[in-house]
């Protein structure tokens, strides 16, 4: 495969123009979004490309950690924007995502599966944080909605002498599954329905397919671990918001 430069990108832009023409013909009102989105993607990705080049050249642990923390905070902010029905969702999503991402990356580094090099850690962190972001938002939204919608059931359990944890157990299970569902589905269909990004990227870059597959398996396991930790932490922090230390249900933002 030829190396891709600005010329090839400009040629590929013809596909965006084709999309705009097709959508215009079918009167789908997305031409402005398509044009702006294409420009935005170009600018963002080029900027990230230069930034990564600089960061990889520095190869400093502190810079890597700083980049990861910035990615987590930006991701947590985006996730909390999708959270409804609970105050200070950012605290929940940022703590959950930090724990999910750092524990997973830390375990992989300690076990020697990956090395502490910016060119490995940052792309992997990006994948982990992206998945954790979705998991935290889905988990928080699901458990908040379930607690609000099942007030009578929860208070019935509390009135029978159950703790808040026992009273919300069925909803906790469902919310945790909701947070992990896309990852679980991905694990089931990977390689059959779609070839995942990391693997495809490596193959396109000329790596041996088997090496690409091995990396993808590691990435898949890492994402599963990160999503699980993020969902569980988000769940724990969210449920606690709804109860006092005396196991009384309080609905925030009422």
């Amino acid at each position: 495969m030829n190396s891709i430069g600005f010329t090839e990108v400009l040629i590929a832009l013809s596909l965006v123009l084709l999309s705009i023409v097709v959508s215009r013909y079918w009167k789908i009102p997305v031409q402005k979004d398509m044009a702006l989105g294409s420009v935005r993607a170009f600018v963002q990705l080029v900027a990230v490309g230069y930034a990564l080049k600089y960061i990889f050249a520095l190869d400093s642990v502190w810079v890597v950690l700083l980049v990861i923390m910035v990615m987590i905070l930006v991701g947590a902010q985006a996730a909390s924007g999708r959270v409804t029905g609970i105050r200070r969702g950012f605290v929940i999503t940022s703590v959950a995502m930090t724990m999910g991402s750092l524990l997973t990356l830390g375990a992989m580094l300690l076990l020697g599966v990956i090395t502490l090099e910016a060119r490995f850690v940052i792309p992997l962190a990006g994948m982990i944080i992206g998945n954790s972001m979705n998991a935290s938002a889905l988990t928080v939204n699901r458990i908040s909605a379930d607690i609000r919608n099942n007030r009578l059931a929860i208070e019935t359990a509390l009135a029978l002498g159950k703790s808040w944890r026992e009273a919300t157990l069925p909803y906790q299970k469902e919310a945790a599954v909701a947070g992990m569902l896309s990852m679980l589905n991905f694990m089931k269909t990977v390689g059959i329905v779609a070839l995942p990004g990391a693997m495809t990227g490596m193959i396109l870059a000329g790596a041996e397919p088997f090496d690409a597959v091995m990396l993808q398996i590691v990435v898949g396991y890492m994402l599963l671990c990160a999503v699980t930790i993020t969902s569980v932490v988000a769940l724990e922090l969210t449920v606690r918001r709804f109860f006092t230390s005396c196991h009384q249900l309080v609905l925030p933002m009422d």
């Binding site: 509390l158 009135a159 029978l160 002498g161 196991h247 009384q248």
Partner: peptide
């Protein structure tokens, strides 16, 4: 709170 509620049963309207 859990012990108290086992001693003081509560029946809801619905």
């Amino acid at each position: 709170p859990c012990d108290l509620r086992r001693k003081v049963g509560y029946l809801f309207q619905t």
